[in-house]
Design a protein around this nucleic acid. Structure first.
Lengths: 189, 189
DNA sequence: CCATTTTTTCAGAAGTTTCTGTAATTTGTA
DNA sequence: TACAAATTACAGAAACTTCTGAAAAAATGG
């Protein structure tokens, strides 16, 4: 079962990059394959196509399930499970965004809230508290923005992408904001 | 040289999360410390405060430099270099965003462009090409949006954060988009 | 409820990354 | 230029992650 060179390149690249995106090489390769292959694949096929052990595939599938990134199909007369990525690639991006937020950002916000609460005892602690507050507010703003974007439908997002203007609106906003304000009211704090 | 519990909690958390953000535990701890400490620190101080070897600090500093995340100071009569994070935390976020984009996203875009170019030879390859095109367009849109946001000044970003409306504008945009169009013109393709 | 297929678990092997101490290099000063 | 202070490079040790094969568990159908 030989892969086309196109798929091979894609899979191999995703394997290397994969760890950056929160999973390991094999899981990255597996998902790359499932995203571009033209039909759902079962665990044995994945194992053979990527030359990795069947058990490794099993662990990878478990991991991808925990990311909610798999669609499972069955074929009549075949007991195996067949896996594929969602058709809608924007949906994939949305899920990855949400999961990473939940796993990486939310715990940090919790920690920061707790530590900011505590009354600082030293100058050192006072300064740290100040800094943590700034960091908290930044991450919190970004989180909220991400939540809101993730709440948009794929259709809306696709339209915005197509118009290349998800950010143009931010610029309009910026111009409104800066255009009318007193020019020197600009200190961040 | 004992750290306040506040800083300890922050440093330790950033160490654990750090790897997610693209650097290892020690580098995460080092940068956490430099972000919240109330004065610049030299390599020996960092080494002692975090109980890691001097040479490890040296490697960490090198790594952080490559991310452009350090400000270096000198004190008269002291030959040591003193390090701190930029005062402006939004600047830090901007740099991390840019660097991660450069390291993680740009190579993927290059690979995708190359593979999409190649004429597919099989049905398998044809389908993969189609999928890669969708992925390319998604990543490319997000990249451009990120570039544009990163190009805004910290002041503007701080204002937008404060108003909690970096995304409200996107919603306005969405409403304009959806409100006036034919209601059924909604297929993503 | 047994036989067979399929999936999952898990202990240890293999591989990778991180960290340290030592040694080499660089920097600054007299 | 010589010296001391400071930084960096690097080989190997320690720690951690990933992967495999074997065995256990679960699912399916007769």
């Amino acid at each position: 079962m030989k892969l086309s060179t196109k798929i091979e390149a894609f899979v191999s690249h995703f394997g290397e990059m994969g760890s950056r995106w929160g999973f390991n090489r094999t899981v990255g390769q597996m998902y790359a394959l499932l995203m571009v292959y033209n039909r759902p694949l079962n665990a044995d096929e994945i194992s053979e196509m990527l030359s990795i052990s069947r058990s490794n595939v099993s662990m990878g599938i478990k991991e991808l399930h925990s990311w909610r990134l798999l669609k499972v199909t069955h074929y009549p007369g075949d007991r195996k499970e067949y896996y594929k990525a969602p058709e809608d690639i924007i949906e994939v991006a949305r899920i990855v965004l949400e999961e990473r937020h939940k796993r990486e950002v939310a715990p940090t916000l919790t920690m920061l809230r707790q530590e900011i609460m505590r009354e600082p005892v030293s100058d050192e602690g006072k300064h740290a508290q100040q800094r943590m507050t700034e960091i908290y507010e930044l991450i919190d703003s970004v989180s909220k923005a991400v939540d809101e974007v993730a709440a948009l439908s794929s259709k809306d997002l696709a339209k915005m992408m197509k118009l290349g203007s998800g950010v143009a609106s931010v610029f309009n906003f910026k111009d409104r904001l800066l255009g009318k304000g007193k020019p020197d009211d600009g200190a961040a704090e």
